[in-house]
Amino acid sequence: MTGRRPPLLLLIPAAGALALILVPLAGLLGHVPWTTLLTQITSNQVGSALLLSLECSLLAVAVALVLGVPLAWTLARTSFPGKALVRALVTLPMVLPPVVGGVALLLAFGAHGFAGQALAHLGITLPFTTAGAVVAETFVAMPFLIIAVEAGLRQADERYEEAAATLGAAPWMRFWRVTLPLIAPSLAAGAALTWARALGEFGATITFAGNLPGTTQTMPLAVYVALESDTDGAIALSLVLLVVSLGVLIGLRHRWLGATG
């Protein structure tokens, strides 16, 4: 810091940027029906959307952990032809418009899709079911987990795994007892981000799983619907989503904001 006053030409747009973030939040907070908030959240429609969202998003995190951690490990610790392509594909859902993801899921897993027909033989239907909502959320949110875990694996000192090997630990034990504990912070951060993203998922879910109250109508979908009829309900749900987002942000602050003081 030089101590000189920063030029107004930079300060004014900077304040504008901050305002663009804060003004809508203030708008939301200004309309929160504080007195009836608890009744709103526990009301039938809002309550069921809340529970369904929790169920779907937590299942999505679980699926992302079971499938994503091994993929992150493969990307971090092995080399194979086409690895760069695989890594790019993994991050594709982060930049792909979610609605496109939903269309793609529908075309693959729908009644006429090749994967959908295969699953139908097993008696599994995904579109317009709760399981479909979980798949849509996992599709969109899993990249966050994979990226965080792969970065954690790259930073972890592989010599700990070597030390475990010389102490008699077989590969599977090394993974569970050494690798995972070493990357626990990255794993937790990745899971938190994945959960936040899954909880807020809208486009892919509504396209692939529909908007069926109690089955696939998660919180973001309920907010959208409620805006027409039950504004207070929509605002209450929005507040819940905002609090969750802020919670994840505060929980991960050391990861992103710690260095800047």
Binding site: R159, Y160, A163, L167, A169, L182, A184
Partner: peptide
């Protein structure tokens, strides 16, 4: 064969006892 590493390489998330017990648990 056991190898004692230059900087020890004790598992940072385990206690001293758990570190020593690691080879037996394995």
């Amino acid at each position: 064969i056991a190898l004692m590493f230059q900087d020890g390489l004790l598992f940072p998330y385990l206690t001293a006892t758990q570190n020593v017990a690691f080879g037996l648990r394995a």
